[in-house]
């Protein structure tokens, strides 16, 4: 059997440099982690009516108190209030909460580190501690209650209906649109060979398609709402 000429020709492709498609993997990672966090958030046990609203108010008050606190003693008291709640949770929950709050505290420490030169020594200790306390509180809230419950609870605080509708639609469509974005990013990643000289237009394409899809989705949602007598 005779091989066609183009097959016999020697391949002369040399990858010029290491391709930096970091933006693709990073975007993919960002979207995926956001999606998995929201999915995890959605499936939670039901709580008695009103608990969520109470918890929101308590956490808000706690954050306000921590933020306004000036003495180290108040921070110790806040820690003593918070840690038992954390200790009550299951290990994976504790790991997730602590992972985020310790990271946040470390970042805060890094940010205030240069203030050593300004002679602002207290801030070096207080700010990361406060960050740890507030992030832990808010993470605990979202770990214990699902976002359905949290949004429903906002009604009790007289948040306008439109905003609640908006919030609910947003969370739902983040998951739906995020899936589409994830598929497109993955498809682009699989089809990428060699150097991509027009990275920006690739990103523009994905986000553009995403925007068009979101418009279509909103039309479909409106039709569905009308069909159900909205």
């Amino acid at each position: 059997m005779e091989l066609p000429a183009w097959v016999q020709k020697e391949e002369s492709y040399i990858a010029k440099s290491k391709e930096r498609d970091l933006f693709l993997s990073r975007s993919l990672l960002g979207v995926m982690s956001a999606l998995s966090a929201l999915r995890l958030q959605a499936v939670r046990r039901q709580h008695a009516k009103g608990t969520a609203a109470l918890a929101i108010a308590a956490v808000f008050g706690f954050i306000l108190a921590v933020s306004a606190a000036r003495s180290p003693w108040a921070l110790w008291a806040a820690l003593a209030l918070e840690l038992p709640f954390l200790a009550w949770q299951k290990p994976p929950v504790i790991r997730r909460v602590l992972g985020m709050s310790l990271l946040a505290a470390a970042v805060a420490e890094l940010v205030v580190l240069p203030s050593l030169l300004l002679g602002q020594l207290q801030v070096l200790v207080i700010l990361p501690c406060k960050t740890f306390l507030t992030v832990t509180a808010i993470r605990l809230l979202t770990e214990i209650f699902s976002w359905h419950e949290l949004i429903a609870a906002l009604r009790l605080f007289r948040v306008p209906r439109l905003l609640i509708f908006l919030l609910d639609t947003t969370l739902r469509s983040i998951v739906l649109l995020g899936d589409i974005a994830q598929e497109m990013l993955l498809a682009l990643r699989l089809r990428s060979v060699g150097t991509n000289p027009q990275k920006l237009s690739s990103v523009g394409g994905i986000l553009g398609v995403l925007f068009l899809k979101s418009r279509k989705m909103s039309e479909e949602m409106e039709q569905a709402m009308r069909c159900r007598g909205w």
Partner: peptide, 20 residues
């Protein structure tokens, strides 16, 4: 009206994207 919420979702996802 649904576009408001979906626009917010788009905005959220846009912030997740890394640009070269």
């Amino acid at each position: 009206l649904p576009l408001l919420g979906i626009g917010a979702a788009f905005s959220f996802l846009g912030m997740m994207f890394n640009l070269p």
